[in-house]
Design a protein around this nucleic acid. Sequence first.
DNA 1: TCAAAAGTGTTCTTATTACACCCATGG
DNA 2: CCATGGGTGTAATAAGAACACTTTTGA
Lengths: 227, 227
Amino acid sequence: MLENFFKAAITVDNVIFGFDEGDLKILLIKRGEEPFKDYWGLPGYFVTENENLDEAAKRVLGELTGLTNLYLEQVSSFGAIDRHPAGRVVTVAYYSLVKINAFQLKAASIAQKAQWHSLSKDNNLAFDHQEILDACFARLKRRVRTQPVGFELLPPKFTLTELQHLYEAILETDLDKRNFRKKIIAMNLLVDLNEMQEGVAHRPAKLYQFDKEKYEKFVAEGFSFEL
Amino acid sequence: MLENFFKAAITVDNVIFGFDEGDLKILLIKRGEEPFKDYWGLPGYFVTENENLDEAAKRVLGELTGLTNLYLEQVSSFGAIDRHPAGRVVTVAYYSLVKINAFQLKAASIAQKAQWHSLSKDNNLAFDHQEILDACFARLKRRVRTQPVGFELLPPKFTLTELQHLYEAILETDLDKRNFRKKIIAMNLLVDLNEMQEGVAHRPAKLYQFDKEKYEKFVAEGFSFEL
DNA sequence: TCAAAAGTGTTCTTATTACACCCATGG
DNA sequence: CCATGGGTGTAATAAGAACACTTTTGA
């Protein structure tokens, strides 16, 4: 009787966010196999019998980017009866944050190619991947206000304007420059590197770095990040 | 080859919160079957092939309480390789909020009995149910500050002190009576019923009701609940 | 008359908002 | 010398925190 229940497959799907030229992007793959061959979809794959859910998500991410140690967070699971034609497939959705210029894409075996897509346009995604994307984006939006995860999307050295534009892209709103700077500087989590932007056709901006150790120390003392 | 992946089972587990006598409670069942026979655990069961995840969670909840239309929210999924001795079982965790005095418990077939437990003490739960419980409680704690879900735990008519005690129990902190009342009244979401508590050995309190329609109207106008 | 919880305002402090001009660089 | 984005402070408003006494009821 119990055996009847052991007929489902588990997959992970990963919404990989990157930030480039002021815009939030997601990494999609063009599917090389049925179902939804030639559709764009989220990178994902079956969870094998010897890996945990987080490990599977990390593997999928690694196969595509070659990177490990990226920010990865489980969001929720999707298991509508008919979401996959091959049988009952429940997928666990993750999102991850990558520094978009830190690696070269490697298309995974399931994909013909991988490409960064703008978040705004309707991409006509495979399966229920639009729904998954929406859930992950909503989660990121909330997370970014209460945890310093935004820095995962920026290069190690960044300007305050880049940081502000990142927040504006994620929160889909405009922020006041002076108030934003006041607040972020007051947190005392940014290190002023005493370095300047180079090669820009305007006054060069100071470069900053996020001090993760300090953040962890502050958290241990009861501090909580709020933007 | 794909067939190899269709060997997992999906379950739902439900952390059912109730509020009684100033304390937050959870509904646990004493397991009548192996594995973990005679341990307390979360109500849960396998997701059948003809139901979606939310439906399965609702069913488990209904079998135990006889109630439908309860607040139910998916939290996250747990799928460690060895979490279940019978094979690969991924569970999708939900929590729900019930008015503790609105129903009589009916033990489901899997359970010897169901009982309300205090949240605070270590219940030595089956499987990874303690971890699931922790995740659900953490989610409730966050949710209750930004959505008016607390009212789901109270009877339709309640006093402001009851409401305050509910928030104190969930947030595990003390709140200032005057500030709490000022804030909740200022939201203009409570209807003063012009009724009084009866049979209490002290000055009787006014009874209030949450105005859900008004809340939805406010939300449509851009209001967001914050406590 | 006592015990127990209900109800009620003000002051102080802190956080948030709104807002405009000069500066440094490359082309 | 022009275009572009960098960098800076203050005043007004709103929100949050701290705090103590009187009232009403049942026992």
